[in-house]
Design a protein around this nucleic acid. Sequence first.
DNA 1: TAGGCCATCTGGTCCT
DNA 2: AGGACCAGATGGCCTA
Length: 345
Amino acid sequence: MTRSVREEQVSVESEEQQELHSPAGREAERGGKEEEEDPLHHLEDDEEDDDEEEEEEEEEEDGENKPKRRGPKKKKMTKARLQRFKVRRMKANARERNRMHGLNDALESLRKVVPCYSKTQKLSKIETLRLAKNYIWALSEILRSGKAPDLMSFVQALCKGLSQPTTNLVAGCLQLNPRTFLPEQTPDLPAHLPPAGATAYPGHFSYQSPGLTPGLPSPPYGTMDPSHIFHQVKGQPYGPLEPFFDGVLVSDGPSFDPPLSPPLSINGNFSSSFKHEAVTAADYDKSFSFSVHYSGGGGHPPIYGGGGPNPRCGELQVDGMMGFDGHSHHERLMNAQLNAIFHDS
DNA sequence: TAGGCCATCTGGTCCT
DNA sequence: AGGACCAGATGGCCTA
């Protein structure tokens, strides 16, 4: 059963069922072992269901040999009190569930704007947060330096601190052989990471993101959408991608929606994923719209071909990157195009 | 079967 | 008092 299916099943579970299925509920069913904690065990069967009984305090346990308990004395758990306790607890549980659902929704939104996203196979929570952190750092570094990283160093930045499976995923989604960008292994760092502070490629930014916790595993889920990285302007030079785009881009054509790339099967064997046929531009209708939103009033640092004659060449599309749909047409096309590029290289 | 990930419950703490 | 937030505990599901 996939996680998403399971989530749906869990979500439709009634509160009462959850109450029964909860660890505490199971404990209660078994007779319970936490007698001190379980309010059920304070229930006096012969108590009236009467609010008047509430103020009664527990006295009979205070034997002379027993040390007196500090703090407020425990009240007898009358049926009425027990009922209120249950109601309060159920309400608290429901709030907590909603809170966690909100948290998960936010995390899902985050998954959609980081460079690896798949509806069917999700990055884990921790890997999503790590990737998001790396992504933010990498973009910030681009803004700060005004230099365009090459794909390798960008992917390295994205992958820093990620588990090996997720790193494989990022590479796999770009049809990159991890060996091409993974330096030699060091005992303290994941194999894909350059030494701290090292510049992976001369002339490109180095990655020094703090607070990394390398080595924690994560399942290989999702797809890499390189359009999160590269946003090109129609009709402009494309830097390293220019030869490719020269043959592909057609201005003002009808909108084209290429199929989403299926989630790549990353099982530790990269060669297998490289063997599969990358989607090439030729697979798509060449008539499509490749509009690129030009956000802001200028001053964005160039990503690619920044030194070119046109100041808008290859500018970073900040707000477009943060779109919550995650996969606009041109983004998906870029994905396929870059896959083709790096597959052939 | 072990380990990873997850949802949920729960009690404590802090805040309004 | 009640709600939000947090962390620990627990058990289910999935995969290698």
